[in-house]
Design a binder for these strands. Sequence first.
RNA 1: GCUCCCAUCGUCUAGUGGUCUAGGACACCGCCCUCUCACGGCGGAGACAGGGGUUCGACUCCCCUUGGGAGUACCA
Length: 492
Amino acid sequence: MGQVRVRFAPSPTGHLHVGGARTALFNYLLARQLQGVFVLRIEDTDMERSTEESVTVILESMEFLGLEWDEGPGKGGEFGPYFQSQRLDIYRKYADMLVKSGRAYECFCTPKELDEMRQAQKQRKEDLKYDGRCRHLTEEQRQEFIKQGKKSVLRFKAENEGVTVVNDLIKGKVTFDNHQLDDFVIIKSDGIPTYNFAVVIDDALMQISHVIRGEDHLSNTPKQIQIYKALDFNVPRFAHMPMILGPDKSLLSKRHGATSVTQFRDEGYLPSAMINYLALLGWSYDDAQTIFAKQELIDKFSLEKVSKNPAVFDIKKLQWMNGVYIRELEIDELYQMVLPHWQELEFLPKNPSNEQKERAKSILKSLQERIKLLSDLDDSAYYFFQDELRYNEKAVRKVLYKEGSLEILGYLLTELLAVKEFTQENLEPIFKQAQNKFERKLGDIMQPVRVAVTGTNVSPGIYDVLGLVGRAKSCQRIKNAMEMIKFHQKEV
RNA sequence: GCUCCCAUCGUCUAGUGGUCUAGGACACCGCCCUCUCACGGCGGAGACAGGGGUUCGACUCCCCUUGGGAGUACCA
């Protein structure tokens, strides 16, 4: 067997969807495992919907996930160009070959005529397929149509006898009755090839050995195989992976929430977690392991272990896994990841001082095991950096307005202002003393302070919070809280 | 309609005729740890879609039904 060459061929009509990302991943894993080549090809033959921005976003997404391609945009390669829009003359050449060999012919049917034909077929409950009315046009008829200015497409003359077998690496042997096939269009009236034609020419010319793609392409495969054979190309190995579904079991789409890689990136998902989760969606190694580093996936991946059934995208599990990877991060890595965003939010200045850096890292350390997404930090870290507190109403009511809170806060305020060094070691005794003095549970002492200083009843350990927020700000916030309580008591 | 694919806990899955009173992970519930939350630990509930075969024996093989998904374009 020759070298393994696989490809990912997205059409730039939007963001990179997680389904596409998983297809890219499986191709990538196989290429790396077998020292093969991973080709990225842009299928931009849909002039209406393809955009430049979309290409950029897709490349960005691939890079974010760490799925480096060996040939393709920005990389070059000896089988280029890697944009289908730049390969039009190539498709034309092979289309002409098919015409010459009698395997393709011009069709002058208008969309309206075709539509009427299908309507009629529907009424008669026949199969919906092109009836081949232009298959045997005489030269005179052809000239007449051209004289009338009618546009034509090129249709492939499909073989209707026998069967076409796809030996799919995931699905197994799949047999199609050729009787099902009709003479499908390979070149549109504007001269652009259709997907089923271009994909064959490109995969053949780019010497793709394994076509790994979504199951939505399985039904198209017999058409493509016929083209391979008509052109005397080697037929590659096929592997069709199951679709990704939403919670309602319909195809995963925007309707189900985030589906694009960039969106996940912006919400604070880590590439490592995305890769790990996507790999497990439709593939498994054994009954024990769920956490896989990329290299491990490369070593252990195999198409044979890819599941045949569609998988529901479980955002909860992805979130859990993201938490796992966040916890594994070195604090410096985590800092680097959040820095740009924190600068945007003005948590940190453009050029943070060493002191600011260290403080930020301490804050991250206290929050690291409490977050699932990097974006969780927006809410759980802001009170370390911003003066204005966003009070959680429920917490205020439950904790601050609880009987005794005012006295506890008043006592603690005095002590906190008086203590020499504002450190964890010095803070702890103060709270213990308060506990004895008021004869309350430690929690009853801590919670009012927590809400006063953070605005909520959920935060890292209170000594950490106080130390990180600092004496001045902590005490000021406690005063503010006391004012709130007094005001509330007057109201009632 | 026609063609193709698929079918184990709510979800992702392990399981390739006896090892299954079906294993793991997420989610869920309870307990423990504890200043809240999280982390961690322990425990619980929870599945072989249905019906026929084949076989000494079916989650595992075959058929049918049902249910889901895909394709059937001058989209990819």
